[in-house]
Structures are given as structure tokens and as C-alpha cells.
Design a protein around this nucleic acid. Structure first.
Lengths: 368, 368
DNA sequence: CGTTAGCACTCATTCTGCCTGAGTGCTAAA
DNA sequence: TTTAGCACTCAGGCAGAATGAGTGCTAACG
């Protein structure tokens, strides 16, 4: 049951007008705005039908109408203009990324900042290691004469370290032996046998055993990808939006943002890389996000490191612009990584293919 | 020119009433609140004199009065009750810290969270390495066959690592030689001679030279203490305060918080460790903080790592409570580090002395 | 039959004037 | 020096009227 053309055009106009002004839009305003001369009365009729279909809502009887979440969904899926990206914009984005992006650790922060700069919205960025990392080597470095060690893990793309504090003394020499054993176990892929054999030879009460346990936990955590890192930029910009002038609403959202874990969950369920995902209001599940939307996409950083970056704004956000900026962003990143990080990728995927994919625009996620 | 006793008592009452209610306080209210029966008329006279002295302000003619910044300053320096800490509170704080504080990296976050939990305000936490760290060892670990290395620095209390990406290939064997040279230079304290000698033997155009330069920068950065890490917790709680119901004000402050660097500067100019510093409104210099106050203190984590933790709230905050909580906090941390991190300190300072110091309460910073 | 003009009706918002009450400053008496 | 009394100020709250944007319905029109 497709919506007839005129209804679609009217709905589109309403959504866009509301996005722009944040005021309920009335039949007269709309009639003026239209190229094809349709009278306000006709629009009124169409509007009341659109309301019955669930696309419009009335805040009260004598105000105009505002789009429902379903309307936003329809707008994003079918109505809005794609490919709005000004090419100048893309170039600017690429330059910004190039300037800011030096190390992998910073991609996340740069992504948020650049995108925030361009959209003037709150942005969120995450790096997750899909499928986890392969740990290649492990070093234990004595820090204070036997009570504290730094465990350093080398993966194929990164190095992580963690302080280990022990309750018993472990001689550096003993630690060195453990290091060798660990690296042997790593290269042979038999990490799981290390602990039992250790407990047999040293007893579970020894400092080495304690140490090995902690290190193995650390390795396992790294292998599983660890917790993804999350960065949020421009949270304060939320307050620029009319809908968050009411402090209570704003507080809820800001509170939500401070719980990185929950924000991470939001970004988890994205579709294929380089597709734009749009989650509108209630689709985000969480009650404090009920009148906000999230537009996000992911991009490949290296073989198994994925970056995700998104824009959080009120449901009445400019979806077309957000999508365009995100597409421009992924292209810019592809350009930069293509130059600066080529060596990190051994995947055969060519840049051309990736750009094509991203041009497809938003995926049609099931609005539920 | 000391303020006479009665004026002091009246001013104290006004400040406390205002802290509690956030409403301008009038003569009648105050008269009722007083044990010693003074008539509202007398209070009115005293009030108008206090106003002339610059301690009180009138929002408008027929409202009560509110304390000026000078009044807060006087309150903090001379008027308020010290040592309000409930011993139960201290114990609770210690338990919370003990539970949350596992690794040094987390002290910062734990400090903010625990303190935020207890005060229900925004808290800020910073770790800075006073005088920098002594780098003891350096390792260069090959990551992708010669184009990327992980530089790992071991200091006396910590391990840091950083990815180094090179534009030219450097053989792992060559890197190993560089590592040896670096460690030799480190142990002999002649780092500054390494680069010139390298440029002579390899030429400035070699990959090794590029690598050495980057590593030396990293070492220097670490030695100088690097950038302090900063964590802010509960920024959203700002919005709970009456004075930030006005979104514009709130936005300014939140924006300010998102610039870590500026927040760091605030915390830099603190007095001796374990003294409570109070910066009221305009004393903070920055216009966006004009009606906020910052109460903070520092605590020793190890020989040359200092933690700073503070509470940010509207100028009308409960200073006595904030100070008490901060004192309790430093004591709790001393307790925890005393148990769990004793080995990290080789300083002769005893815990007793430190606690005494902290009991002195807020230092009299020059209100300017 | 779809479209349009006209009209009565609704209702949030704004403005107005009025009132109230908290609080002040001043004066004169204790 | 303190207090009581009184006139005065002014923000905030409330009620009612005016405004105007917008709707729904009906009847006429092409």
C-alpha cells in the first residue's frame, strides 16, 4: 500500500519544514511553500488523512501538525534527498581529518571532533576490535623490584600494557621464566594448558601463579577485543536544541551519555560497514532517548579494527544532512587511511569498492 | 578592621540560609532563625551595613539579600564550621575507594566517581606527574615487519607505550641496535648526544634517524610529565542546580568542561598537598565560571605522582560539606594507598603527619 | 469526484491590569 | 542602641480579554 505521490510530497514538505523551524506546521504555511498551487483546504484534507495513517500528530487542536516517528522513518527511507554532499565539503572534511589524524588512538577522537564541527551536533565515536586481536607476544617488565610488573601485549596492530600488582614478591628472574613460558604457549596456541601445569609445579599459592592468572586474564580480554573505547564530543551542544531547553530532558540524556557502556550498546547493532544506519526515537529502546535519533556508520581502520561514528540529535534532526556528512566522512577517512595507513591493511578491498558502497546511503533498518 | 561578632553571625546565617534555599533571605526569616532574639529591624540595619561593606547584594529592592562573592570568601576563610565529617562517612568513603581502586590508572576515575556519589555534584579529577618521571628503560617492538614499532617506556612507577609509524622500512635487527643504544644512553644520562652521533653515522635521511627522533620526543615528553590526564564525572548534575536551569549558563559551563586543557589549568595552581583550596566565582578568572566555585585538594599517589580532585558547583554550594568530604576523601585514600600501595612510596613522610596537615582545612587563598 | 472557498470553532499564547505579600528604609519612641 | 510602626517598592501570581494560527465541516465549483 504505497502512499500516493501528492501525500508523499506533502509529508516530505511537512517533515522538512518541521526540521527547519521546530514549530508545528499548518496548512496555510505549507500551501505557500508549495510550487504547485494547492489550496490550504486540500492540504488540510490530505493532512487529516496522513494523521489517520499515523504519520502526523497534533500537539493540540489549534496548532499545526508535527511528524510522527513513523514519518521520520518514511522520510529517511524513501522521501529525503540523497547525495546532498557539496564536494567542497568533502574536501574540507578530508583536510580536517588529515590534519588531526596521526595515530590510531586518535582516530576516534578526531572522528568525533571533525564530525561535530561540521554538523554542530553531539557526536559519538567508538573503536572496536571485531573478532578480537591476535596476541603475538607478551612481555613482563619489572617495575619496583618484584611487587609490580607491567604486562605488555603486542598484537598485530597495537600494543597494550597494564600494571600488575602482586601481593607476594616474584623475582624478576622468575618473571622472565614465566615470560618465556607464556610466549611459547602463545606461539603454540596452548595458553589453556599453562595454568594447570603451573599450579602443579608451583602450587596455586605462589606469586607466579597469581601473576600468571592475571596476565592470562589480560590476554584473554585482549583476544576477545576488550571493551571498546568510546568518545563523545560536544555533549553540550544538545542544549542548543529547542527540545532540550527543558533541563529535565537534557539531564536525562547527558546522564545517559556518561555511561559509556550503554552508548556502546547503541552502536553495536549496526549493519554492514559503510552503510548509514538511522535509529529514530523509540527504535533506540531506551526511554531517555525517546525523542532523539542516532545516525551512524562504521568504517574499517585495519584488518580487524572497526571504527564507528555517529550523530546524536533530537528526532527532528536534518537526516539528509547527517547522512551526507557521514558519507563524506567515511570517504575522507578512506582517503586518509588509504594514504597514511596503507601498510596496516592487508585486505584486498579496493578503495573504489568501498566508496561505491557508502554511496548507497542509509540502509533500511527495520523500524520497530 | 575585623567585623564585629554580631555582624559575623548574621552574615554566616545569611550565607547558610542562602546555600540551603537558593532564595534571597530577608530580615524576618533571619530573625526567626536566630536563637538570640534580635528584632528584624535590627537585622535590617546590620544588613544594610553589610551591604555597604560589600558582603551582600540585593537582586531588587523588595527581595531579600544574597551573599556576594566576598561574603563566600569570608565564610570559607573564617565563618564556616570546620570538621563536619561524620566518622561513618569517612568509613564509607574508605570502603568505596577500596572497592573501586585497583590500578593507578583508575584512581583518577574512582576519585571522581566516589566524590561525586557523596556530594552529588560535578567532580573533576586529575593525575599529574610532578617533576616528571624518570624513564628507566625503553623497548622498541616491531609490529608489522618494520614499518610500525611500539615504543614502550618503563618508568619507576608506570609503563607507557606509543605507536611509531615510519615512512621508511627499519629492519627489526636495526631497531634492536637502536634499543640497546637508547638504553645505554638512558642509563648513562647522555640522551642528548645520541641524535648527533646517529646523524653522523647514519645520515639524517635514514629511517633509524627518523625513529630515534620520534622515540626521543616521546621520552622527553614522558620525562617532563607529559600532559596530565583529566576526568570529569557527573557533568549532568550541574543541571540539578537552580542556577543552571537557564540552559545558556549551563551550556557555557559544559562547553568549558569539554576542554580538558582549560580544566587542567584550573587545578594547577593549588597550594601544598592535603590543603583544601577554594576558588570562588570570579577568582576562577574564566567568565563561564563566574558563578561557579571550585573546591579541590591534592593527594600523593607515589613519589612523584600527584592526584588532584575537586568539586565544581554553583558559588552557592555547601562549602563546609565540600571541604569535609574532601578531607575525608584524602584520608580514605591515604588509608587505601597506605595498605595497597605502600611499596610505591619510598618517601619518609608518615601517614600521621599527612592527616594532621589535611585537618588544617582550607588554605586562605588570596581572593582576588 | 476531487478541489476549493467560506465560516464557525478551538485553544495556546500574550497582554493587561490587579492584587498580594515579602521585604525594605526611615522615623520616632523606648 | 534597639525596637516598633508605617509608608513604599516591586516581583510574582492570577483572571480575563484579545489575538491569531489552525482546524473541521459544508457547500459550491469545474
Amino acid at each position: 500500500m504505497e502512499l500516493p505521490e501528492r501525500k508523499r510530497r506533502i509529508l516530505k514538505a511537512i517533515v522538512e519544514n518541521y526540521i527547519e523551524t521546530a514549530e508545528p506546521v499548518g496548512s496555510k504555511t505549507l500551501a505557500d511553500r508549495f510550487e504547485a498551487p494547492i489550496s490550504s483546504a486540500t492540504i488540510r484534507n490530505e493532512m487529516s488523512e496522513l494523521e489517520e495513517l499515523g504519520y502526523l500528530e497534533k500537539p493540540h487542536v489549534s496548532a499545526g501538525r508535527i511528524p510522527s516517528y513513523a514519518a521520520y522513518r518514511l522520510y529517511v527511507n524513501e522521501l529525503m534527498d540523497r547525495h546532498r554532499i557539496a564536494t567542497g565539503e568533502l574536501e574540507a572534511m578530508r583536510l580536517m581529518m588529515q590534519a588531526k589524524m596521526r595515530e590510531i588512538d586518535n582516530i576516534m577522537v578526531s572522528a568525533s571532533k571533525v564530525l561535530g564541527e561540521m554538523t554542530r551536533h553531539t557526536t559519538v565515536s567508538m573503536i572496536s576490535h571485531t573478532g578480537g586481536k591476535t596476541v603475538r607476544r607478551c612481555e613482563l617488565i619489572d617495575v619496583d623490584g618484584g611487587y609490580s610488573y607491567a604486562a605488555v601485549l603486542v598484537t598485530e596492530s597495537d600494543v597494550k600494557n597494564k600494571m600488575i600488582r602482586l601481593s607476594r614478591l616474584v623475582e624478576p628472574a622468575t618473571a622472565a621464566v614465566l615470560t618465556t613460558a607464556l610466549n611459547l604457549a602463545i606461539s603454540e596456541g596452548r595458553l589453556e594448558y599453562l595454568l594447570p601445569s603451573l599450579s602443579q609445579s608451583m602450587g596455586e599459592d605462589s606469586g607466579v601463579y597469581e601473576m600468571a592468572m592475571t596476565v592470562l586474564d589480560f590476554i584473554r580480554e585482549t583476544q576477545q577485543g576488550g571493551k571498546p573505547e568510546i568518545y563523545i564530543d560536544g555533549a553540550a551542544r544538545l542544549l542548543d536544541n529547542r527540545e532540550y531547553q527543558d533541563t529535565q530532558r537534557a539531564r536525562e540524556l547527558l546522564e545517559y551519555f556518561s555511561d559509556r557502556g550503554r552508548v556502546g550498546e547503541l552502536l553495536e547493532g549496526g549493519e554492514a560497514p559503510n552503510l548509514i544506519n538511522v535509529r529514530i526515537g523509540p527504535e533506540l529502546q531506551d526511554p531517555s532517548m525517546r525523542d532523539a535519533s542516532l545516525v551512524f556508520t562504521s568504517y574499517q581502520i585495519d584488518q580487524n579494527t572497526r571504527g564507528i561514528v555517529g550523530i546524536i540529535a533530537p528526532a527532528r534532526m536534518d537526516y539528509a544532512d547527517a547522512c551526507a556528512k557521514l558519507i563524506a566522512f567515511t570517504q575522507a577517512v578512506a582517503g586518509v587511511t588509504g594514504q597514511g595507513m596503507k601498510r596496516l591493511k592487508d585486505t584486498g578491498e579496493s578503495d573504489e569498492r568501498r566508496n561505491q558502497e557508502s554511496d548507497r546511503g542509509p540502509g533500511r533498518s527495520p523500524g520497530r
